[in-house]
Amino acid sequence: MKKMKIYFNRWFSVAYHYMNAIRNNEDGIEFEIYATHPDPRHMSLQGCDHAEVEPALQGLEYVKFCVDFCRRHQIDVFIPRLRMLHISKHVHLFDEIGTKVIVCRDTELLEKLMQKDKFYESVAETGIMTIPAYQVVNNAVDFKKAYEDLAAQGLRVCFKPTNSEGGLGFRIIDNDRDPLEELFGHVTKWISFDEAYQVLSSKESFPDLMVMELLEGFEYSIDCLSDSEGHLLAAVPRRKAGGRLRLLDDKPELLEIAKRVAQTYKIPYNFNVQVKYNGDTPKLLEINPRMSGGLHVSCLSGVNFPYLAVKLALGGKVDPQTPEYGILASHIEQPMRMKTAETVSPV
């Protein structure tokens, strides 16, 4: 039986772990893994069998590059991260060459997921979970009003761009800070209202910001596996437990949220729900329609999330999984010899 060929385009460094998880699958299927990235020494390329340098392209031109890559290397399954929306909009180009793509084909949903305020509106309409109090602003006057409205409710306030990934642009408003002390300390995510207002007032308008209540309880990242019909096959709630520690936690209310998200939005393959508690209530932060940055930790539950997504894409049957919970996990650095630039093929 020939090796199945998997392709990762520009991914995070943790794709190294996903590649190894697929390679070390429980069915004993052999895979040949391909990857591209603009940086020939990027960590994600160290886990693949064949690497190429990725060109700087946008939109349809980038999709055509990926299609050509899949055609040239006869790729069986493509696992995209960069330009997921564009790839989803043109997924028929991959269908035509016989490459399965691990992506949500509901482009309207993908667009909402990438605009946090639009997705919050959608979640509020469905009632499947609680969302934080928030207002969307794009000028300093509205920023001030939103801050004052939330503060008047007794809420601590934070803000972040409506269209960002991870913690980019996230700030917490704290008016009790000591600027001199911070000047000699670490760079922080805290900022006073006056400082934020001064910066935002320097422009007539700015890209949309969500001004939100600050959630101060435990933050959970729920790694999920689902089929295209909305059947949740696995869910593992994972939270920070101090320092490098991570706890894979059995939280019935979070497992129920994962189930409702799968049934409502039918996001196929891997997706991730991020929530944070306010008291006893978990509230939505965001949903990522892809493998999360910490998914390899959730795989310690006994569920091989990356491989099972590939198995689904190839038409295989995946039964509901039984994750092991209550696992306290961590990680250590391990030295390794890098592949040199000469071993990475230029495009």
Score class of each variant (00 low, 15 high):
residue 208 D to F: 09
residue 67 V to P: 02
residue 237 P to T: 08
residue 276 K to C: 11
residue 154 G to D: 04
residue 54 E to L: 02
residue 281 T to I: 15
residue 334 Q to M: 14
residue 246 R to P: 02
residue 128 I to C: 02
residue 97 I to Q: 12
residue 29 I to N: 11
residue 150 L to A: 04
residue 23 R to V: 12
residue 318 V to R: 12
residue 312 L to V: 11
residue 109 L to Y: 04
residue 179 P to Q: 09
residue 281 T to G: 01
residue 43 M to P: 00
residue 95 D to N: 13
residue 323 P to K: 05
residue 1 M to Q: 11
residue 151 A to R: 14
residue 346 P to F: 02
residue 300 L to W: 04
residue 227 D to K: 07
residue 52 E to A: 07
residue 102 I to K: 00
residue 271 F to E: 03
residue 117 D to V: 09
residue 186 H to A: 12
residue 150 L to S: 05
residue 129 M to S: 04
residue 178 D to Y: 03
residue 277 Y to N: 08
residue 159 F to I: 05
residue 308 L to T: 10
residue 342 E to S: 13
residue 25 N to F: 11
residue 261 V to Q: 01
residue 24 N to F: 13
residue 309 A to W: 10
residue 340 T to N: 06
residue 170 F to D: 04
residue 142 D to F: 03
residue 1 M to A: 13
residue 41 R to I: 03
residue 29 I to Y: 10
residue 20 N to C: 01
residue 308 L to F: 09
residue 304 N to C: 11
residue 270 N to S: 13
residue 140 A to T: 08
residue 239 R to L: 07
residue 221 S to Y: 01
residue 286 E to W: 06
residue 285 L to I: 15
residue 200 L to G: 09
residue 69 F to R: 09
residue 215 L to A: 02
residue 166 G to V: 08
residue 42 H to V: 01
residue 154 G to I: 08
residue 244 R to A: 12
residue 7 Y to P: 03
residue 122 S to T: 14
residue 138 N to E: 12
residue 187 V to I: 09
residue 70 C to H: 10
residue 94 F to T: 07
residue 22 I to W: 07
residue 221 S to V: 10
residue 53 V to Q: 07
residue 273 V to L: 03
residue 61 E to L: 02
residue 257 I to S: 01
residue 49 D to V: 01
residue 95 D to I: 06
residue 177 R to S: 06
residue 71 R to S: 08
residue 216 E to K: 12
residue 157 V to Y: 11
residue 235 A to N: 05
residue 236 V to D: 02
residue 120 Y to I: 14
residue 176 D to C: 10
residue 69 F to C: 03
residue 329 A to S: 15
residue 155 L to I: 02
residue 202 S to I: 01
residue 132 P to Q: 05
residue 269 Y to V: 07
residue 331 H to D: 07
residue 220 Y to T: 08
residue 289 P to V: 09
residue 3 K to C: 10
residue 270 N to C: 15
residue 207 P to M: 08
residue 33 I to G: 02
residue 270 N to F: 06
residue 153 Q to R: 14
residue 213 E to H: 09
residue 162 T to H: 06
residue 128 I to F: 01
residue 331 H to A: 12
residue 73 H to S: 05
residue 107 T to K: 05
residue 194 D to R: 13
residue 30 E to N: 09
residue 297 V to R: 00
residue 309 A to C: 13
residue 157 V to H: 10
residue 176 D to N: 15
residue 38 P to K: 14
residue 334 Q to T: 10
residue 266 K to L: 03
residue 282 P to A: 04
residue 205 S to V: 08
residue 65 F to I: 03
residue 242 G to H: 09
residue 180 L to P: 00
residue 184 F to R: 11
residue 106 D to R: 04
residue 112 K to A: 05
residue 272 N to T: 10
residue 140 A to V: 13
residue 197 Y to P: 02
residue 309 A to E: 13
residue 325 Y to I: 03
residue 253 E to W: 02
residue 266 K to V: 00
residue 275 V to N: 07
residue 347 V to S: 06
residue 77 V to R: 02
residue 318 V to E: 11
residue 316 G to R: 09
residue 10 R to Y: 11
residue 172 I to E: 06
residue 302 G to R: 12
residue 310 V to R: 06
residue 123 V to F: 05
residue 141 V to N: 12
residue 276 K to L: 05
residue 27 D to E: 15
residue 102 I to R: 00
residue 143 F to H: 09
residue 8 F to H: 13
residue 182 E to G: 07
residue 265 Y to A: 03
residue 165 E to P: 01
residue 8 F to Y: 15
residue 77 V to G: 05
residue 8 F to W: 07
residue 157 V to D: 08
residue 88 S to V: 05
residue 15 A to W: 00
residue 309 A to S: 15
residue 128 I to K: 08
residue 2 K to N: 14
